[in-house]
Computed example of a mutant assay.
Amino acid sequence: MDHQFSDNSQIGIVSSFSDLVISHFKGEMNALCWNRNLEGDFKEIVSQLQLKDNITEVSAEDLLALTLSEKGDIARQTILNDLQLLSDFGASPSLNLLKNYERDDEFDFISTDVYSFHVDRSPIGTDTFLCTYYGAASDIIPNHQVTQKILIPEIREKLKELHQDSEGDFETFLTEYFFDLHYEPHHGAKPLNLGLGHLWRLAVDHPEQKVLPCVHRAPAENDGEYRLLLIC
């Protein structure tokens, strides 16, 4: 087991998919990890897939059409099994080949893209599942090590100036444009990298949620390297 996960009060460690989906978030714990050391050659799969856009969704049929070595096939079976487990659970998993996400550079004082630390929000009770099979992996950060960006005085003032040109309540404006979902790490904050091969379940902001939502971000991609990511 990876000790950086086991010694962290934000993370619960499980050893099976069934434990991953039935365990409850509680206290500071808003991330659950099915800790795995996957076998197989995921790089071989990535090298054979065709990137059509910066983000290309890969279907089970796309995976099955690849001609792979024995190690490549082990990796393929792992991904197909994960897709099946999540689908049977009632989730809608998506396997993405990623060059990069779109950057939000509209404002110089606040970013609302996925490279910024943020939480996911849903109107219904749900969770975010993700697993990075290849490439750079996502980060999470403890809630006490971040401040909501809309509460930082200089950012809030600039948002108020921006709001003057639109109608409606200021707080509604912040929600409608997703400014309230983004967070600024404190000086000396210690993000945790989610690593490769582990299947994660992260707490989402929704009406029935009993814990704080998990603050996370997409990583800067490694030069010349695609990511292979399962997410739902």
Rank of each mutant, 00 (worst) to 15 (best):
Asp2Ile: 05
His3Phe: 10
Gln4Lys: 07
Gln4Trp: 05
Asp7Met: 10
Asn8Arg: 11
Ser9Val: 09
Ser9Asp: 09
Ile11Val: 09
Ile13Arg: 15
Ile13Ser: 00
Ile13Lys: 11
Ser15Trp: 10
Ser16Phe: 15
Phe17Arg: 02
Phe17Asn: 04
Lys26Ser: 12
Glu28Met: 14
Trp34Lys: 00
Arg36Ser: 13
Asp41Trp: 13
Ile45Tyr: 03
Val46Arg: 01
Val46Ser: 07
Gln50Val: 14
Gln50Met: 12
Leu51Arg: 13
Ile55Tyr: 05
Ile55Glu: 10
Thr56Met: 04
Glu61His: 14
Asp62Val: 00
Asp62Cys: 09
Asp62Ala: 12
Leu66Asn: 08
Thr67Leu: 09
Thr67Lys: 07
Thr67Pro: 06
Ser69His: 06
Ser69Val: 11
Ser69Ile: 13
Lys71Gln: 12
Gly72Asp: 10
Arg76Pro: 11
Ile79Glu: 04
Asn81Cys: 13
Leu83Gln: 11
Ser92Tyr: 00
Pro93Asn: 03
Asn100Thr: 14
Asn100Asp: 14
Arg103Asp: 01
Asp104Val: 14
Phe109Asn: 03
Ile110Trp: 11
Thr112Asp: 08
Thr112Ser: 15
Asp120Trp: 01
Asp120Asn: 11
Phe129Asn: 00
Leu130Gly: 02
Cys131Leu: 05
Thr132Ala: 04
Tyr133Lys: 01
Tyr133Gln: 09
Asp139Glu: 14
Ile140Cys: 08
Ile141His: 09
Gln145Thr: 07
Gln148Lys: 10
Pro153Thr: 11
Glu154Asn: 08
Ile155Phe: 09
Lys158Ser: 09
Glu161Ser: 06
Gln164Cys: 13
Gly168Ser: 07
Leu174Val: 04
Thr175Val: 07
Glu176Met: 04
Glu176Thr: 05
Phe178Thr: 13
Phe178Ala: 07
Leu181Ser: 12
His186Glu: 14
His187Ser: 08
Lys190Leu: 10
Asn193His: 07
Asn193Lys: 00
Leu196Tyr: 10
His198Glu: 11
Leu202Phe: 03
Asp205Ile: 01
His206Val: 00
Glu208Gly: 02
Glu208Leu: 09
Lys210Glu: 15
Val211Met: 06
Val211Leu: 01
Leu212Glu: 15
Pro213Tyr: 05
Val215Cys: 08
Ala218Ser: 13
Ala220Cys: 03
Asn222Thr: 11
Asp223Cys: 11
Tyr226Thr: 00
Leu228Cys: 11
Leu230Asn: 00
Ile231Trp: 02
Cys232Ser: 08
